[in-house]
Write a protein that binds this DNA or RNA. Structure first.
Lengths: 117, 117
DNA sequence: CCAAGTGTGTACTATATACGACACATGACA
DNA sequence: TGTCATGTGTCGTATATAGTACACACTTGG
């Protein structure tokens, strides 16, 4: 059910085709984990790594950290902190937007970005 | 640093003054945990309980679950699931709203609620 | 004055999380 | 053909999470 491993493997292998520096060993080395551990992660033998490791891995593979964290079944700690500061407000907002089409959410994002508050 | 315990205790004690059914033992009984454990939670001797227990406790004490979860340093699993389905969209939105005044966020909430999408 | 209820100290536990260390077989390539 | 790099199997571990179980001393209401 967790696509984190296979997805990671696919991305790394694609990079490896053009650049030998994307072997399990070398990527693991730059990310700061053991090669055997990365191998297990990619095959889904173990659950996705911690947030810190996931983010390092995402950056290493040129991926969006938030997307990688989502695949890992997590939500970035900094986002959680923002929500926790005003729980009712954000809980309402997010639940409101649950069924909204991407288009509508995007409109809100832009509106807020250009907002006059 | 965690206000979860003391806050819970204060709320429960206020309720206890008017209704003896809000003793540590009885509340723990209805919530489904051991009295000694609730006692430790309230004094901050242990970290806040799991999400499930926190929500039960919140309901028992007539509090907002999201607020209680926030005090416990957590964000409701259902909110996280919503975010994980569209990580980029929601990550952007939430970070945009980080510094926005309550007023602005509320306006967005209402706008979405009455929205025509 | 005593029986029931109150909160709490101590000790224990089961499961999950998040890895590290090392050895090994296979394959590429010079 | 030998060396180097590749991925992976096995084993071990430290820390956190989320509690239970039981006994104990104090208080209070009838």
């Amino acid at each position: 059910m967790t696509l984190f491993g296979p997805t990671t493997r696919a991305i790394r292998e694609r990079l490896y085709e053009e650049d030998r520096r994307y072997s399990v060993r070398q990527v693991a080395g730059r990310v700061g984990i053991e090669p055997a551990y990365l191998s297990k992660i990619e095959r889904g033998e173990v659950s996705p790594p911690s947030e810190v490791t996931t983010v390092r891995l995402a950056k290493e593979l040129g991926q969006d950290p938030d997307v990688m964290l989502a695949l890992a079944g997590k939500v970035s700690a900094d986002l959680q902190a923002i929500i926790r500061k005003r729980p009712r407000l954000f809980a309402d907002l997010i639940r409101q937007l649950k069924e909204a089409p991407d288009e509508a959410v995007l409109r809100v994002v832009r509106e807020v970005r250009d907002g006059d508050w």
